[in-house]
């Protein structure tokens, strides 16, 4: 079947282009030599282990983790009620509110980072960490609202009324009936937010100070100084982390429904 072969070739070529570089990164990090090369000069795990020894990587990893987890959780705390209101109530000015809430997806991150630095951090003496936290929360918020809205829309509205008629007050109806049924949507929003925040660069570009850098920014800075395979090793490790989380999410929740 010539057609099948042609189609296989097209798919293979595209995948080679999209995934190939990632495979090269993995192997470049496995190098036994001291400079970045592919194919690597011999194989060793030393660069993968060396990554853990770099103090600044450890610090920035902790910061990035804090931003990704804390920012996403905060975004969910204010995003879930917002999604609920947008889906269930006939709010005045709904369209404007939707645009406001979606804005962080459209406005380029570098602009946000710069604006926060110049008008919050400097004049109001916010710490860089606080500014980063606010920026990452804002960045993740639209995803939280969108994903949770999608799962609310799949949920019938009458089950809440049924809960009320069986004796629930509004808050109980939400916690006992709505929340358990949108749990996977919330988890999906968390994962999407986590990955988005953790990999985010432009927002954090201006928002860094001595000892306060997110991991991707730290990697960029490291690359400018040294040309050894540790960044490759770290990149590969981070990629595995993201893929692992998403893979588990996909297997348990059918994550891709929400993205």
């Amino acid at each position: 079947m010539g057609q099948t072969w042609a189609s296989r070739l097209i798919i293979f070529t595209t995948l080679l282009f999209l995934v190939g570089p990632f495979i090269i990164i993995i192997f470049a990090g496995l190098s036994a030599g001291s400079s970045l090369a592919f194919p690597p000069d011999g194989l060793s795990l030393k660069w993968y282990l060396a990554v853990f020894e770099v103090e600044s990587f450890r610090q920035s990893f902790v910061l990035s983790m804090f931003l990704a987890v804390g920012g996403t959780l905060t975004a969910l705390v204010i995003g879930v009620p917002a999604a609920y209101a947008i889906c269930r109530y006939n709010i005045p000015g709904a369209e404007t509110i939707k645009i406001i809430v979606a804005a962080p997806i459209i406005v380029p991150g570098i602009i946000v980072g710069l604006a926060l630095l110049r008008y919050l951090v400097v004049p109001l003496e916010f710490t860089v960490t606080l500014a980063l936290f606010l920026a990452h929360t804002a960045l993740v918020l639209p995803y939280a609202v969108r994903v949770v809205s999608a799962s609310l829309q799949n949920l019938r509205t009458d089950i809440e009324e049924a809960a009320v008629l069986l004796g629930c007050n509004r808050l109980q109806a939400f916690t006992k009936v709505i929340l358990p049924n949108i749990r996977s949507g919330i988890l999906a929003a968390f994962i999407l937010g986590f990955v988005t925040s953790f990999n985010q660069v432009p927002v954090s570009l201006f928002l860094s100070g001595p000892g306060v850098r997110t991991l991707p920014i730290d990697m960029l800075a490291y690359m400018e100084i040294t040309y050894d395979p540790s960044v490759a090793a770290l990149s590969a490790l981070l990629a595995f982390l993201s893929i692992g989380i998403v893979f588990i999410a996909e297997k348990t929740l059918g994550f891709s429904r929400y993205v």
Binding site: P21, F22, I25, M219, V231, S235, S242
Partner: peptide, 12 residues
């Protein structure tokens, strides 16, 4: 690739 950090992807 969408799950992988753009830094890693570009670095490749």
């Amino acid at each position: 690739p969408l799950m992988i950090s753009p830094v890693a992807r570009t670095y490749a």
